[in-house]
Amino acid sequence: MRLILGIETSCDETSAAVVEGRRVRSSIVASQADLHARWGGVVPEAAARQHVERLNPVLQQALDEAGVSLREIEGIAVTNRPGLVGALVVGIAAAKALAFALNLPFVGVHHLEGHLYSAFLTDPDAPIPFPHLCLIVSGGHTELVLAKGHGDYQLLGQTLDDAAGEAFDKVARLLGLGYPGGPAIDRLARTGDPSAFRFPRAWLEGSHHFSFSGLKTAVLREVERLRNEGTLSEATIADLCASFQQAIIDVLVAKAVRAAQEWQVSVLTVVGGVAANAALQSQMREAADKACLQLLIPPPHYCTDNAAMIACAGYYRLLAGERADFDLDAHANAPLAK
């Protein structure tokens, strides 16, 4: 089992990739961000329709850039959970059609398991250390996961309300910064003062869980107050962004490092779209250094949704002998681990 074709259509990125174990031969992502920006968020049916139009050309491009033919592909991995069901079924139908036509084994991959493996795509020759701690931070998820082995995960904590990325998107919408919100807030926060506003941090002492809805509400109230006073200037918006972002980073960094110490792991990975945030990366690195933890954060193009991470996760499942059949289905919600 060597060359794996990965397919990812769980939300608004149409992606296909060819990996050779952990070595990425090609990774193509057709983003729909521009399409959904006009609506301020992902419209599920529009996303699914785009996948139908784009997936076959994206598959071909992935094969062409990898310099391989379909006859050389030895297995297929496709995201089948969690995600927008109408979007997932497009990728699953394509994967099943490929597997049937070419008589290839295929597996369904949990989207978050894909993110977990994204940390190991940059250096394919370095061993994957188990156990390690993974902080998954994206628009749909904020989870702390203990990875004990390939396919063996323990959920330590998760958000009780909004995911970190969801909070970024909602605050960006509130401030009129457009969609997606994370990059816009990251950019504006660089010119703002992170201590200008003292927003709440939900520490939830004694647990590894997260909560960001109180923070979002606090920002909402502050924005309303500033608007009523007529003092919501560009500089104030930058301060709001920096202060809001800092509140999120403080919690993510402290909880991730604390969990790593508690579970006595030496490697911490931070993955998902929010992991591309520059301030989070630098502050997480500083805290990890102090705690003598090895920190792995994938490059930005592997932080956001991509099929290379799905193919990589699928590679280990196929290697272990796992096989899906025609009854593989899509699931909107599914835990990575219990």
Partner: peptide, 23 residues
């Protein structure tokens, strides 16, 4: 050509409610 085949939906997609991005 398979790349140009698209369904005949007739109805436009419902645009509410928007979901947050993933990634």
């Amino acid at each position: 050509h398979p790349f140009s085949l698209t369904p005949l939906y007739i109805q436009p997609p419902s645009i509410t409610p928007p979901k947050p991005s993933r990634g």
